[in-house]
Nucleic acid binder design. Sequence first.
RNA 1: GCGCCCGUAGCUCAAUUGGAUAGAGCAACAGCCUUCUAAGCUGUAGGUCAGUGGUUCGAAUCCACUCGGGCGUACCA
Length: 542
Amino acid sequence: MKEYLLSIFEEAAKRLVYLRDLNLTFDVPKIESQGDLSSNVAMFLVKQLKKKPRDIATEIVSNLNVDKQIITKIEIAGPGFINFFFSPSFMSRIVNDILTEGENFGKSKKYSGKKANVEFVSANPTGPLTVGHGRNAVFGDTVSNLLEWIGYTVDREYYFNNAGRQMRVLGDSVRLRYLELLGQQVDFPEDHYQGEYIKDIAKSIYDEFGDIYINENAEGIFKEKAESEIFTDIKRTLERLNIKHKIFFNENSLYEEGKITNAINAFKEKNLSYEKDGAVWLKLTELGNDQDKVIVKSTGEPTYRLPDIAYHITKFDRGYDLMVDIFGSDHNATYPDVLAGLNALGYNSEKIKVLIHQFVTIMDNGVAVKMSTRKANYITIDQLIDEVGSDVVRYFFNMRNITTHMNFDLALAKKQSDENPVFYLQYANARISSILKMIENENLKSSVENIDLLTSIEEQQLLKKLYQFKNEILLSAEYFESHRICSYLEELAAAFHRFYTFCRIIGTEKKLAEARIALAMATKIVIKNGLSVLGVSAPERM
RNA sequence: GCGCCCGUAGCUCAAUUGGAUAGAGCAACAGCCUUCUAAGCUGUAGGUCAGUGGUUCGAAUCCACUCGGGCGUACCA
């Protein structure tokens, strides 16, 4: 539809100079009576032309050469909108496209040839993934899918740190539990990891090696074993959500390969750092930020900023056109320093897109659950998947804009999982599958031969929704907003359920019935494609 | 104190990134199954878009201030 409007506007621009070099957009009006597509170009030109918007609109419309077979009506409405009404037969053409393109319908090549890196989850291996990580994990993977759909080659990356204080405490937690197993009386400190999984790890060391590590320190086998077992668990949890990272990037490699030193030297050379009180400071005030920050502590140890900067340099070195970082809101203060540092070193930080998601408040019986891995006060993603299934988990974390402070009532999720919108979508898909099985016995097939018989309101509304899919994918990807796909699919499914209710197939005259089957098949493809972007399955039967 | 985010129907959230009469789901109420899956459909009711100013053809959306909530504000990550 848009392509056609663009072509007639281009033709009209030969006569109307002011239509040239405009970035024309067409919107789908909220209200049916306002047409299938609408342009606000006349209002947009008010200032430039110093005329009334409705007069401009009138002039534009009289210069449009429209094919009456395609557009049945053009209307100037409200303050100066130009509303276009498409013919039913033109609308039905989309079915051909969908059936031809199949599982590729909705993909575009707009960004093909470009490489993107999406870094997400990136939880250090100190414990199981909690629902707190769920939003990050699901959103990151869906953004990756979206970017792939518009042509990017995407590397999913997980950044982690297995050194430092956190990990020492983890190793020591395992060590103490191990000593307990050996019958020693130990005083387990409050700031150690309290979770049961620590005991399991200690037990597995005990089972395998007995008491030979009785005098081992925290950093040896205890830390190593903890890290490997926890990572195995994390990967298994992610796999249950259909998430697979291509790259696990260890922060430690930055030290081993001298990237940290390189970064320090680079700042020094550019005279962007100085020493004070035994520490090295970065001149962030000169780079437009509020205050200077320490990049190397007086102990000689870098702060997180330095490895973060060095890490992003490796991403630039790896040649990505787009780098997406997905963080929880607790990181919102850290990334401006990193971006400023990168810019100062000559890297274009506009290639980095930082997406901050707000936290999910978990409500249990009306009380907010405060999560802490260390205090073992958490609900894991695995528990959640066990309760409601991975489709619901994925859909749930995708369905809201990441800027919202989302509330998640556990009790409600368990009790009312039947009412989750994901079932509404899957149900539409299952109904179509059922029809497609049924028609074999009725001697009916799918046919686009008489597709222009699809003129009823329900059929036209469904067609209109199908038309929007490709654009919806593109916008969702460009805005990094996966929740739009959920909203779209719910509307599509609603349009289908109405079609299903009012437009029977079996018992209808053959030509119309076969056109309707084609429409149902096209709908099934779009629902399935949309769900696959979200990482949600489309079962044939429910 | 300062920075970022949020405040929309009883609840959970949308709103085409500044567009026309602010929409869905849940909950409530009234209907629809001897025909392709009732996990569905139709209808009713529900709103001071936190508040006050401003910007313009036009504001839930942008700006300023106020109120309320979340997250930060380290020589932790």
